[in-house]
Design a binder for these strands. Structure first.
Lengths: 125, 125
DNA sequence: CTTTCTGCAAACTCTTTGCACTCGT
DNA sequence: ACGAGTGCAAAGAGTTTGCAGAAAG
């Protein structure tokens, strides 16, 4: 079961890397379809799954919303603006630090975390 | 549109308050149905929505999982064990502190956050 | 009585899957 | 040629909703 480099897989990855808006599967399909009108939504889902498993895409889901995909693979958090709906990637320098020290002292082994901060972005304030 | 105190609404809230396992809508329906066999899943969803809007229930959704409901209304985080699947409520004393200072200095108004920490719980280690 | 709520079932949305065909290797 | 990948359309899972009747105030 050796994976193949198909045009569809490459297109999905290209769209994901070019996107900064954390698109949904439907949006990715729409964008891929601009250059490859025959591509099906099912194939987009299959390739997104493939990329996610390969660690080349991140699946993001905020409470109550549709699943989104992020081409930024490095560990980071998210800020979701309640005003304009924009989603900002937060890296260590800017992002909130999560201190799991107390948790680990309590006997929990921490592997990773998923953090979304909600509020208003500078542009909306 | 003055809300009414129906037996179904009360039952859903009771189940939610008695539960410590962050049940799904289907699980809540199952439990409510033990005392009230006629209750429909649709009604459970409608009442959960009502409780959430009233701030008497919290909607929780971890990446890739089904929506869960939490009767613990105070702001808190969650630990999700990859071993046994248990979900632990994390309050300030034990839970990880999220420092949004840098974010706020960058011009973001922070309202709230949603944090899930994944790893292995003491019982599973 | 009036109006909200309920049960039921159908509809909806998002995602997954079976199948025959295509295309990468 | 072989078999993973594709397009299509149908199926699934989870959630929402329209409607007529039930029930709270």
């Amino acid at each position: 079961m050796r994976p193949r480099r198909t045009r569809q897989l490459a297109a999905v990855e290209d769209v994901l890397l070019a996107a900064s808006d954390h698109p949904t599967a439907a949006q990715i399909h729409e964008r891929v379809a601009q250059l490859m009108p025959q591509v099906s939504l099912g194939t987009v889902y299959r390739n997104l799954e493939k990329l996610a498993q390969a660690g080349r895409a991140v699946v993001v889901r905020f409470d109550g919303e549709v699943t989104r995909y992020d081409g930024t693979v490095e560990s980071h958090d998210h800020f979701v603006c309640r005003g304009c709906g924009c989603i900002v990637d937060l890296f260590a320098e800017v992002g909130p630090a999560v201190d799991t020290g107390a948790l680990e002292r309590a006997g929990y082994a921490v592997a990773e975390h998923s953090l979304a901060v909600f509020g208003t972005c500078p542009a909306c304030a």
